[in-house]
Design a protein around this nucleic acid. Sequence first.
DNA 1: GCAAATTAATGATTTATTCAAG
DNA 2: CTTGAATAAATCATTAATTTGC
Lengths: 200, 200
Amino acid sequence: MPQAPSTRWCPTPEQLMMLEEMYRGGLRTPNALQIQSITAHLSYYGKIEGKNVFYWFQNHKARDRQKLRKRLNRHHQMLPQQHYLAQQPFPTNHQIEASYGFLRQASPQFLQQGLREEVAEAMSLISKHGRCEREEEQQRSVETSPMTSGYEWRMLTGASTGAPSSCRPLRTLDLFPTRITGLRGDGIGSKSSSCSASTK
Amino acid sequence: MPQAPSTRWCPTPEQLMMLEEMYRGGLRTPNALQIQSITAHLSYYGKIEGKNVFYWFQNHKARDRQKLRKRLNRHHQMLPQQHYLAQQPFPTNHQIEASYGFLRQASPQFLQQGLREEVAEAMSLISKHGRCEREEEQQRSVETSPMTSGYEWRMLTGASTGAPSSCRPLRTLDLFPTRITGLRGDGIGSKSSSCSASTK
DNA sequence: GCAAATTAATGATTTATTCAAG
DNA sequence: CTTGAATAAATCATTAATTTGC
């Protein structure tokens, strides 16, 4: 049995990885030239044609959007009163900007001066999430968080581990991702040590 | 009646979106301070705690890696002769660098001077993809790639639509993604990562 | 169309490794 | 060599998505 001639392109992991990397990088609709270049480079890893690249981006973008829309639908059709956004009239564009703004200024390392296309898209989708297709949905119950303390939560023990749940825009430290890579030992503050490793 | 206490955090679409954005941006292991900040900001959209953020990044990173590993496994255990990498001894580190290099220099916009952590990780994973655990998994369509020629494939028709399948590193246009928003990552440095040794 | 049953995702915990001090 | 911090990997558990029988 000759393997099926396989009618369709099957990306190798390397190809996929690189396409995803480019997508992550912000590329959404490569032009002909870009597609040519990408195709040429990726062909090192296996058979691939320009149209494969083209379609991949088309599909990936579409599915990304669809996923987001689905999530928004599900979430907002959810029973009210237990969701913040549901309580408020719904954030105005200004509020949204104000909130997402932190993303923008927060990490100059990976978010440039302008919002990335993805974020912009998403914001627009969120702010005017009126339409959207039919999407089933059911409820779910969010409430309480037992938080079994334990584990390596020592890192935040002293500090306010998490803002349990306030509702205002909240404005604390605006410093943010100050690294990305690594420096593990970074400046996590004092190695308070203490807990961890013990009850096991 | 008291609704189910609900034991776990359920991210709102907005929270998810922003976490993903940060992840995409390159953030992998936020330190305590970053977690605090993120938590504070995201709490605007609903209940959330530091540990949720912490766990989210842990899991997301882990599952990303796992996904890649799986793909590599699947791919390399695949019947040979129809995959390029299988034919070659397997690219040496130098070759890999040489090939991924294009990603680095190709789009200065979104890939800084150094490879992003993700890419570095992946490269390392690929180059030494020896071990890996048993992983069941059903064939989930990797990433549909239609090929119904026709359609709006006019854009590349004239040009060499795709390099059908040559095998050398291929070096054509190095111009590349000429747009998008912005340069992100800063000095990601090399990081090495090296998740888990191998022969143990 | 619905809702129980099944399957996939993913949040939360636990266990193992790794690495750097001491 | 031992110890402790920091992660990665593995696993558990619950919620979301699908499927299936009425």
